[in-house]
Simulated assay, not measured.
Amino acid sequence: MASVATAGVPQHEEGARPAAEAVANHIEAKGLNKTFGQFKALEDIDFGIRPQEFVSVLGPSGCGKSTLLRIVAGLIPYETGSATIKGEKIRSPRPDVGVVFQTNNMLPWLTVRGNVELGARIRNMPADARKVAVDKVLDVLSLTKFADAHPHQLSGGMRQRASIGQALVLDPPILLMDEPFGALDALTRDKLNVELLRIWQEHRKTVMLITHSIAEAVFLSDRVLVMADRPGKIIEEVTIDLPRPRDAATTRALPKFGEYVAYLGKVMGVAN
């Protein structure tokens, strides 16, 4: 994997967020390989994500990003190498990991509250504790006024916020997000990027975000892992040394923001 100190990558300056201290990784993969029949989807994947770190996996469609996330989520197996969470081999879904997919999985016959609390009901969370947790999540996601609405009464962005709420209500320390805003229009996507960043800055969960948006990855992340296609492999790791806390207007106006976007575009082959 290429060094982050590559020519053209903005380097650390005064005021930027310093690199995290060396700590045990929450998520780690070593020599990870995955095949589907004769098709090799992932090849020799190596990476680690530290506690409370926000890491994006960036790459073109079909490069294996979602496959990698599903392996980390314990939803599909892998053949060789290793994948661990908190040092434990990933064998199945875990209660300390929340997952948000691109397509919301809200049940149409339940209200927003009913959908958000569904996981807590399945886990047999006591009713009083469940109400407190759901009320808190609805407030964080600015959905309190829509608690009794049904999915068909919500905009696409609101449904995605409710989907995030389904993952947050059990307060998992690790959050996996598979292109959660990919199906939304650009304006709604930008607004939800800001909302996601606000939530992360307040609650500091360990986040692994799958995306094909370079600007989204730079705006949100501490580090960006870039994947190449056929078979999927990590070809570069770039540390995003932009000041935190971040906000849309200030961060996107920084010259370094544009430099990161341009550099990652070159790495992905979408810019000269």
Rank of each mutant, 00 (worst) to 15 (best):
17 R>H: 12
17 R>F: 09
17 R>G: 07
17 R>K: 13
18 P>M: 09
18 P>G: 12
20 A>P: 02
20 A>C: 09
21 E>D: 15
21 E>G: 12
21 E>Q: 14
21 E>M: 11
22 A>Y: 12
22 A>F: 11
24 A>D: 12
25 N>G: 09
27 I>H: 05
27 I>W: 03
28 E>I: 09
28 E>D: 10
28 E>A: 13
29 A>G: 03
32 L>V: 09
34 K>C: 04
35 T>A: 14
36 F>K: 12
37 G>W: 11
37 G>Q: 14
39 F>G: 08
39 F>A: 13
39 F>E: 10
42 L>D: 00
43 E>T: 10
44 D>L: 10
45 I>P: 05
46 D>G: 08
47 F>C: 03
48 G>I: 05
48 G>Y: 01
48 G>W: 00
49 I>P: 01
50 R>E: 09
50 R>K: 15
52 Q>K: 15
54 F>S: 01
56 S>M: 09
57 V>H: 02
57 V>M: 10
57 V>D: 03
58 L>F: 00
62 G>L: 10
62 G>E: 12
64 G>Y: 05
68 L>F: 05
68 L>W: 07
70 R>N: 14
70 R>K: 14
70 R>A: 07
72 V>N: 01
74 G>L: 10
74 G>C: 06
74 G>V: 06
75 L>V: 08
75 L>W: 10
75 L>C: 08
76 I>L: 06
76 I>D: 02
77 P>I: 10
77 P>F: 11
78 Y>H: 11
81 G>F: 06
82 S>K: 13
82 S>G: 10
82 S>W: 13
83 A>T: 04
84 T>I: 07
84 T>C: 05
86 K>V: 07
89 K>L: 11
91 R>G: 08
93 P>C: 08
93 P>A: 10
93 P>L: 08
94 R>I: 04
95 P>T: 13
96 D>Y: 10
97 V>F: 08
97 V>P: 01
98 G>A: 07
98 G>Q: 05
101 F>I: 03
103 T>Y: 14
103 T>E: 13
104 N>I: 00
105 N>T: 08
105 N>S: 10
105 N>P: 03
106 M>E: 00
107 L>R: 09
109 W>H: 04
110 L>G: 03
110 L>P: 00
110 L>H: 09
111 T>F: 03
111 T>E: 03
114 G>W: 03
116 V>Q: 00
117 E>P: 00
118 L>G: 02
118 L>E: 01
118 L>T: 04
120 A>D: 01
120 A>C: 05
121 R>W: 02
121 R>T: 01
123 R>G: 05
123 R>N: 12
124 N>S: 11
126 P>T: 09
127 A>K: 15
128 D>K: 15
128 D>G: 07
129 A>Q: 15
129 A>P: 02
129 A>D: 14
129 A>H: 12
129 A>G: 05
130 R>Y: 07
130 R>W: 02
130 R>E: 04
131 K>D: 06
131 K>T: 07
133 A>E: 01
133 A>V: 05
134 V>P: 01
134 V>T: 08
136 K>N: 10
136 K>Y: 06
137 V>K: 02
139 D>K: 13
140 V>T: 15
140 V>Y: 08
140 V>K: 11
141 L>A: 06
142 S>E: 13
142 S>Q: 15
143 L>Y: 00
144 T>F: 03
